[in-house]
């Protein structure tokens, strides 16, 4: 199994990530192969459909600005 974390990650430069904002995605062989609402859903999908590949998985941030707010 080749560790291709960097090529999977840099492949995202060519993807339109807007449609995945706020969603979990998995990248296999430099392509987004699945997106969904939960890590478990994505993890199960890639383990079933790409058992020999090593996926890159993440939840992309929401399409709204992120700010740190400690005001109580």
């Amino acid at each position: 199994m080749i560790n291709n974390i960097i090529s999977n990650f840099e492949a995202l430069d060519k993807e339109d990530l807007t449609k995945f904002a706020g969603k979990w995605i998995a990248v296999v062989d430099n392509k987004v192969v699945v997106s969904g609402e939960s890590f478990k859903e994505i993890y199960t999908y890639v383990k079933t459909n790409y058992p020999r590949q090593r996926p890159l998985i993440g939840k992309l941030p929401e399409p709204t600005p992120i700010v740190l707010n400690s005001i109580r």
Binding site: I5, N8, F9, L56, I57, G58, P61, P63, T64
Partner: peptide, 28 residues
Amino acid sequence: TILKSGKIIYRPLIPITLIGSNESLDVI
């Protein structure tokens, strides 16, 4: 990514491998 407002925003995402006692996982 493009925000709901239509503005384009760029975020500092990184690839990192998390290594636990069961397995390791490449994540963003």
